[in-house]
Amino acid sequence: MAKIIQHQLFYPNPPQDVWDYLTNAELMAQWLMPNDFIPVLGHEFQFKTKAMPDIDFDGIIYCKILEIDPPQTLSYSWKFGPGDGTLTDSVVSWTLNEKDNGTELQLIHRGFAGSETMTIFTMMDEGWLKNIQKILKLLNTTTNGTTQA
């Protein structure tokens, strides 16, 4: 089970070029989404995309710049929700490293619903199988197996 979203790519362009595509609203719109980004610490902005009611997403992502250090690191909060005012918290972080006449770009998207969420995922990974076995045993010894596990 994935605990974190992580992508790493290499682009044959200098970090400054990649940085421009991450921090210039017009360039960002070309590959990401329409937005009102301004590269200033603490600036609040939004991305807009199409709504997806199936997964309770109204198509607006509420962001705030948490860290900006050109042309190396950028992170912003990334909050989304169904449009009723409730929002799920997460954080998107970009890291750029100059390498082999190009740029290694790393994206990490984490912290859904608070940092402890990932602890639960870890817990699920570690404890899940053991737990299921224990439950099955318990159910088998005390009931006639009316539930399908």
């Binding site: 790519l9 044959p12 990649v18 070309q30 590959w31």
Partner: peptide
């Protein structure tokens, strides 16, 4: 992100 970053790759290329 996977699909967006591909798009970025095309632009940067």
């Amino acid at each position: 992100w996977g699909s967006k970053l591909k798009k970025l790759e095309v632009l940067l290329n």
